[in-house]
Amino acid sequence: MPPRSPQRIRLSPERRASLLAALQRHFEDEFDEPLSAFRAEGLVDFFVRHLGPPVYNQGVKDATGFLQEKLADIEGEITEQDDGR
């Protein structure tokens, strides 16, 4: 069995079904055109494969920046408390 790619996004069956239904509704509402389950699955696979990794990476980058800011705040508070004693 080949090793798993860390960039591969996996959807739970529930999440996948929800996305498929939402995509089919979107096509019906926006384009007045039905989208078959087969085509919807192909589109979901395409978007997950091509958009999943960059969106995931951006989320990790944003979370890292947020945590770095919080750690800098904590470090500043500790420094202030040490200077005041």
Rank of each mutant, 00 (worst) to 15 (best):
M1F: 13
M1Q: 15
M1N: 15
P2E: 15
P2F: 15
P2R: 10
P2I: 07
P2M: 10
P3N: 08
R4S: 14
S5N: 12
P6H: 13
P6Q: 13
Q7K: 10
R8C: 06
I9E: 06
I9P: 00
R10I: 13
R10V: 07
L11T: 01
L11I: 01
L11K: 04
S12E: 07
P13H: 07
E14D: 07
E14A: 02
E14Q: 10
R15A: 15
R15G: 09
R15W: 13
R16L: 02
S18P: 05
A21S: 14
A22P: 04
A22N: 07
L23S: 09
L23K: 10
L23W: 02
Q24Y: 01
Q24M: 08
Q24T: 00
Q24D: 03
R25C: 06
R25E: 15
H26F: 14
H26E: 12
E28W: 04
E28V: 03
D29H: 11
D29Q: 11
F31H: 09
F31A: 08
F31T: 04
D32E: 12
E33V: 02
E33G: 02
E33S: 13
P34F: 01
L35K: 01
L35S: 00
S36V: 01
A37N: 12
F38C: 06
F38V: 14
R39I: 07
A40V: 02
A40W: 01
G42Y: 00
L43A: 12
L43E: 13
L43V: 05
D45L: 08
D45H: 06
D45G: 09
D45R: 15
D45T: 12
F46K: 14
F46P: 05
R49D: 15
H50K: 10
P53M: 01
P53N: 04
P54N: 03
P54Y: 05
V55C: 06
V55E: 03
Y56M: 08
N57A: 14
Q58M: 14
V60S: 03
V60I: 15
K61Q: 14
A63V: 08
A63F: 08
T64E: 09
T64C: 06
T64I: 06
G65H: 04
G65Y: 06
F66C: 06
F66G: 05
Q68S: 14
Q68Y: 02
Q68A: 11
E69A: 13
E69D: 15
K70Q: 13
K70Y: 07
A72Y: 01
A72N: 00
A72M: 03
D73E: 11
D73S: 11
D73I: 01
D73C: 07
D73P: 01
I74C: 06
I74F: 11
E75S: 11
G76R: 00
G76F: 00
G76K: 00
T79I: 09
E80H: 03
E80T: 12
Q81K: 05
D82H: 03
D82N: 05
D83L: 09
G84T: 11
G84K: 07
R85C: 07
